[in-house]
Design a binder for these strands. Structure first.
Length: 798
DNA sequence: AGCACGCCGACT
DNA sequence: GTCGGCGTGCTC
């Protein structure tokens, strides 16, 4: 009998999207388990790849067993993926058109997927001359450091025994440790220390005084290494190495807070939902106006969940994962909470993940991928701001966290709560049909806080009446009022597309990216022109590349320009600017909000990132400088997105006792998205938008699949797009409708042309099979460098 | 992806 | 006659 492992290796390709059998060496047999990571030799060159163990079985040692390669190395002492997660991956594989290995990898913190590098080591057979050419005189070198040309010589050198090849992890230090000391009082007191050794006496007094144990590093801050060493050698100090959690410092400074009392609506919602914990059942839509205290409902719900001995996941959009948000959870549940978001370093993410796996953390608060957290016995999964497009991953595997949550909730009998002030149309429609339970919070949690008044200002009324156009007189007037009253203002610029560029005043030349159909963006912080799609970067031109004119000017239309105007118009105002440029550095985001919150500025000017979740009681005016820029995008969700954004940002005003006011500047005051946003009427918007969706056969009346084809040759993509289209028409029923093929709104990026086909369907039996057939087409040699993306329910068409 | 096998042109 | 170009096909 031999032990055979089924292993899926890290080669994300159609041909390798299946487990391979490997022999388990005897030395590993006691430790190996399903869900562990391994290194296995793969392919002709036996290069080492990371893989996951999906199955283990005893096999008869018959002679007809194929020659199995042995597993090279076991990477874990305990499984990194549990059965729950492996089952989840199986289910996701059915709906997400990507490979299983990609799904499995996305369930783990990045550190555990880190790459391994080949090391070439010289043996004594290698001549000095060759050593200098290949290894640059050294006895070993990373393969990635060899030039491509030299790399080709490696097989020959290996064969002749001149070099050997090994693999090392690029990042080995997963677990961080810290040295701690503890005082051995008995020994310390008997130490005979000379009265002349002043430092030693000082340290002894220090240790006898208050500090019987602590971090060795702290001791080194006060005393020199020599002095400390004396005590360690004498045995008066015992040093121990303990594992530390890199994210702990984040938790230490958060003070405990008590639960707030709920109003009747909140309490009712908590009761209804708690009743379903452990029973599964339909998901809940919790629709609550801005400021209605949804977070407090979540907190109570989690408290109940924990009392029942169960665990909880809270998903929050990345952009709202501010300390203000996470601290509310930490302050109630302390170190039972794990926080997972992109602001953490790889090491910190890994530590938080371990906290969850070990069972220490029972509440996971995080962005999209936190839905995969290895919790046992989940009682509640909460998705806050459920309408946010960031819950859909825009690269492989293209999963929607809401769909994964549904699967997990089902297998755990957990309740799934979708919370929003402005639910996605799809979700709201499901609540309407009774697919979801529908719970509403119609009042603000603070009874004194009223829903703010919203005024729409038409830019067209002021055309030609002022020099600078970002600020209309009514808005300026209101800002002045607030400055006089020492209240605060939030101003939002819609969309990042509102960025700076360079144009020649003589010939109108705009500096475009050579690889993409888009103009380059000016970044003053780095003094470069950058492309938002590819990595292209160049210096700012001083002479027009087209007509050599010196009249080449920078047209800053972004927050920078608005900021400049604002400080010119209102020199006395203290303005904080928040956009990608000012928040690039780690922690800058928090620092700026902290400064605004503590009253160090009067105006917070920023992009969408200021629209969500901020809670500053002194803000009584919110201004939207340009409501339109997200309105006319070629995307059927553009009205929905605009409405959601305007409603969210309006909700930043008047959250405490003072009354709030909102001004929306627009060129389209009669557009329904803006009219309903003005009324703060989600239900009205929902009803109106549903009419349009029905008319145009869009979700939720129809499902959509987006197929994107990309290639460097435009004619080729067009031809292939029509081929794919023909294939679809042939294999799908005639109830299906198609849009396209059409060029994507930005037709070329990374030097590739993109064409898109959209499939709309209600019921279609052959869909999965047909789409897999399309995927197979890319396997044909002539389609080798054709890129094809199948996106189920795409969230963005731009 | 990598790596080898395999079948055609320009070189000692 | 050989070295090497990259088309094609497989990886336990």
């Amino acid at each position: 009998m031999v032990l055979v492992a089924q292993i899926i290796v890290d080669v994300p390709l159609m041909q390798t999207d299946r487990p391979y059998s490997y022999f388990v060496p005897e030395s590993m047999q006691g430790q190996i388990a399903i869900g562990m990571r391994v290194h296995v030799p793969f392919g002709k060159g036996n290069r080492l790849l990371q893989g996951f163990i999906l199955g283990l079985e005893e096999q008869e040692n018959g002679g007809n067993l194929p020659e199995l390669k042995p597993i090279a190395e076991l990477l874990d002492y305990e499984p990194v993926l549990n059965q729950d997660q492996l089952d989840l991956a199986d289910q996701m594989r059915q709906t997400v058109f990507s490979y299983k290995i990609s799904i499995l990898k996305s369930m783990l913190p990045g550190l555990l997927n880190s790459q391994y590098d080949k090391v070439i080591m010289a043996t004594d057979k290698l001549s000095e001359e060759e050593r200098c050419t290949f290894l640059q005189g050294r006895d070993h070198i990373l393969f990635s450091q060899l030039s491509e040309k030299q790399g080709q010589a490696i097989p020959r050198l290996v064969q002749s025994g001149c070099v050997t090849v090994d693999y090392i992890a690029k990042d080995k230090q997963n677990i961080k440790t810290e040295k701690h000391y503890s005082v051995q009082k008995g020994i310390l007191e008997t130490l005979d220390i000379s009265q002349r050794a002043k430092k030693r006496l000082e340290l002894r007094d220090f240790l006898l005084g208050k500090s019987e144990s602590g971090k060795l590093a702290d001791l080194y801050k006060l005393f020199s290494r020599d002095v400390v060493k004396f005590f360690i050698e004498a045995g008066a100090l015992v040093i121990t190495e303990v594992e530390v959690n890199r994210a702990d410092s984040y938790f230490e400074k958060v003070a405990r807070t008590d639960f707030l009392e709920l109003n009747a609506q909140q309490a009712h919602a908590v009761e209804v939902m708690t009743g379903q914990i452990g029973r599964g059942g339909k998901p809940f839509l919790l629709e609550g106006v801005t400021g209605s205290g949804k977070t407090e409902v979540y907190l109570h719900l989690i408290e109940r969940t924990l009392t029942m001995g169960k665990t909880a996941i809270v998903l929050v959009p990345e952009i709202s994962l501010t300390p203000q948000m996470t601290n509310r959870f930490i302050s109630r549940f302390g170190d039972l909470v794990a926080i997972m978001h992109s602001g953490l370093s790889d090491g910190e993410k890994f530590d938080e993940w371990r906290k969850v796996r070990s069972g220490q953390a029972k509440v996971v608060v995080g962005a999209r991928s936190a839905i995969f957290a290895p919790l046992d016995n989940i009682g509640a999964i909460i998705i806050d701001e459920e309408h946010e497009a960031t819950y859909k991953q825009e690269s492989n595997p293209r999963y929607h966290a809401r769909d994964v949550a549904l699967l997990r909730a089902k297998s755990h009998g957990a309740i799934l709560v979708l919370g929003s002030a402005t639910p996605s149309i799809e979700t709201r429609a499901r609540a309407q049909k009774g697919v979801y339970h529908f719970l509403e919070l119609t009042e603000r949690a603070n009874p004194k806080a009223k829903i703010p008044q919203v005024e729409v200002v038409d830019f067209k009324d002021f055309v030609g009446r002022q020099e600078v156009s970002d600020f209309t007189p009514p808005l300026l007037e209101k800002i002045r009022e607030r400055l006089a009253r020492k209240e605060q203002v939030v101003l939002m610029l819609n969309r990042r597309g509102y960025s700076s560029f360079v144009m020649c005043r003589d010939c109108g030349y705009v500096d475009d990216c050579p690889n993409c159909d888009i103009s380059l963006t000016l970044h003053m912080d780095t003094k470069t022109m950058n492309c938002h799609y590819c990595d292209f970067q160049k210096a700012i031109p001083h002479v027009c590349p087209n007509c050599q004119s010196r009249q080449i000017r920078y047209y800053g239309t972004g927050t920078q320009k608005a900021y400049d105007q604002l400080t010119e118009l209102l020199p006395e105002a203290r303005v904080i600017r928040m956009d990608v440029d000012t928040t690039r550095k780690k922690g800058a985001h928090e620092k700026l909000l902290e400064a605004f919150g503590s009253g160090k500025a009067d105006i917070l000017l920023g992009t969408q990132m200021i629209a969500k979740g901020l809670d500053f009681p002194n803000v009584t005016l919110v201004g939207v400088l340009n409501a339109d820029t997200s309105l006319n995008l070629p995307d059927f969700r553009s009205a929905e997105r605009t409405f959601q954004l305007l409603t969210q940002v309006a909700g930043r005003a008047g959250r405490a006792d003072k009354e709030g006011e909102v001004i929306i500047q627009t060129y389209n005051p009669s557009h329904y998205a803006i009219r309903f946003a003005q009324q703060q009427d989600y239900e009205g918007f929902y009803a109106y938008e549903m009419g349009i969706r029905r008319q145009l056969a869009y979700p939720p009346y129809f499902y959509t699949v987006g197929i994107t084809l990309s290639h460097k040759d435009e004619d080729f993509v067009v031809r292939k797009s029509y081929e794919v289209m023909a294939y679809l028409k042939e294999h799908l029923s005639d109830k299906v409708t198609f849009l396209g093929p059409t060029p994507k709104p930005i037709a070329r990026t990374h030097n590739l042309y993109h064409y898109q086909i959209i499939i709309k369907y209600r019921f279609e039996d052959n869909l999965e099979e047909t789409l897999n057939g399309v995927l197979d087409m890319t396997q044909e040699p002539e389609n080798k460098d054709l890129r094809l993306i199948i996106d189920h329910e795409p969230q963005s068409f731009t």
